[in-house]
Amino acid sequence: MTNSTMDDIDLRILNCLLERADLPHKEIGQRVHLTGQAVGARVRKLQELGVIEGYTIRWNPDKIGLSVHAFVTVFMTSNHAHQTFQSFVQHKEQIVELHRVGGEGCYWMRVRVGTQAELTALLDELLQYGNYKVSLSIGQMK
C-alpha cells in the first residue's frame, strides 16, 4: 500500500492509532464517521499491507529503576567486527535501540540502565568492538 492507495480515512485512522494505540475501533469510528466494524476492517487491511507493523506502549522507565538514559555513538575499530557487534547488541536488554549511521560514528545506541555503574560496565564491554562517545539525557522534552 502506498500513499496513493491510502485514502484520507485510512490516514485519519492511522493518526488516531499513532496518538493512542489502544483506542477502541468504535471510538475511532466516531472520529472518522465509520462504524467500529468498518474501522476494524481498515485496520486489518493496514496490518496485512505492512503499514501497521505492531503496537507499543508508553512507559515510565524511572518507575522501574531505569533512571540512567544514555545515547552512545560507537566508532568501530575494525571493519570485521560489525557482525559480532550486532550479535552482542541483540543480547543486551540495556540497549533499547541500535541504528547504523552515516556521518560521525558507525552506530548510534539508546541505552537505559539503573545506575552509572551499570552504564560503565556496558561501556567497558563495548571497548572490545571500538571506541564510543556518551551523552546522558538530563530530561525528555517530547
Rank of each mutant, 00 (worst) to 15 (best):
T2M: 10
N3K: 13
N3G: 11
N3M: 09
S4T: 07
S4C: 08
S4G: 00
S4H: 09
S4V: 02
T5V: 11
D7I: 03
I9W: 03
D10G: 00
D10W: 00
R12I: 00
R12H: 11
L17N: 04
L17C: 02
A21D: 00
D22M: 02
D22Q: 02
L23D: 00
P24A: 03
H25A: 09
H25C: 08
H25F: 13
E27L: 12
E27W: 01
I28N: 03
Q30G: 00
H33F: 09
L34K: 11
L34M: 12
G36Y: 06
G36P: 03
Q37N: 10
V39T: 11
V39K: 03
G40F: 13
G40M: 14
G40W: 13
G40A: 15
V43P: 04
V43W: 06
R44Y: 08
K45A: 01
K45Q: 12
L46M: 15
Q47R: 13
Q47Y: 07
E48V: 07
V51T: 14
G54T: 06
G54E: 08
Y55R: 14
R58W: 01
W59D: 01
W59V: 13
N60L: 06
N60M: 05
P61A: 02
I64K: 13
G65R: 04
G65C: 03
L66R: 14
L66I: 04
S67K: 15
H69F: 08
F71W: 02
F71D: 06
F71P: 01
V72C: 04
V74N: 05
F75H: 13
M76C: 06
T77R: 10
A81E: 06
H82K: 10
Q83P: 00
Q83A: 09
Q83L: 06
T84K: 13
T84S: 14
F85V: 00
Q86A: 03
Q86S: 09
S87I: 00
S87R: 14
S87M: 04
F88K: 00
V89R: 05
Q90F: 05
H91Y: 02
K92V: 11
E93D: 07
E93L: 07
E93S: 12
Q94A: 11
I95N: 01
I95K: 06
V96C: 08
L98C: 04
L98I: 12
L98T: 00
L98P: 00
R100S: 14
V101L: 01
V101M: 02
V101Q: 12
G102Q: 10
G102K: 07
G103L: 09
G103F: 06
Y107F: 15
Y107I: 10
W108C: 06
R110C: 03
R110K: 15
R112A: 05
V113R: 07
G114L: 08
T115A: 02
T115N: 03
Q116P: 07
Q116K: 15
A117C: 06
L119C: 10
L122G: 06
E125N: 03
L126W: 10
L127Q: 15
Y129R: 03
G130D: 12
G130C: 08
N131C: 02
N131D: 15
N131W: 09
K133Y: 11
V134F: 05
S135V: 15
S135F: 11
S135E: 15
L136G: 10
S137L: 11
I138K: 05
G139H: 07
Q140K: 14
M141C: 03
K142H: 12
